[in-house]
Amino acid sequence: MIFGVLRLLVIAGLLGSAWVHLVVWLDWARDVAVVGPLFLVNVVAGVVIAVAVAVWRHHWLPPLAAAGFGAATLGAYVLSLTVGFYGVQEQFRTSAEVWGVVTEVVCVVGGLLLLLPRARRE
């Protein structure tokens, strides 16, 4: 039961990240050469991985993909906060940025916990 709830949280984190990136893409990112297409990749990947986590329950690949997705996206965001990411410099001021960080942390932590052997059996 605990791992079922955890699976739902990971799915929510993935879909939440996809939603945040879609909203930001519609707001400003579609006009940025490299970052705009990457935001769309994030939208599609978040949905695809969420479906995989929901459907492919007893395999290690979807939780690993969720954790990697969250870590890569969070890493790109940290770069945008510090040294810049393809010309984008963020300042952690908007609610979209806060929700983005929250959803990515859920993806990383939840995905790693779902990799536990017991989680794949339940």
Rank of each mutant, 00 (worst) to 15 (best):
I2T: 12
V5G: 10
V5F: 06
L8Q: 10
L9C: 15
L15P: 07
G16S: 14
S17W: 10
A18E: 06
V20T: 14
H21C: 07
L22E: 15
L22Q: 13
L22N: 13
W25C: 02
W25A: 05
D27G: 05
W28L: 12
V34N: 07
V35R: 01
V43E: 00
V44M: 10
V44H: 08
A45P: 00
A50H: 10
A52P: 04
A52L: 14
V53R: 04
V55R: 13
H59I: 03
H59P: 00
A65H: 04
F69S: 04
A76V: 02
Y77T: 02
Y77C: 00
L79K: 05
L81S: 00
G84N: 12
F85S: 03
Y86R: 11
Y86I: 09
G87L: 05
G87C: 08
V88G: 02
V88D: 01
Q89G: 10
Q91L: 08
F92L: 15
S95C: 06
A96I: 01
A96P: 00
V101P: 04
V105F: 11
V106P: 02
V106K: 00
C107D: 11
V108A: 06
G110H: 03
G110Y: 02
G111C: 09
G111H: 09
L115R: 00
L115F: 07
L116V: 06
R118T: 13
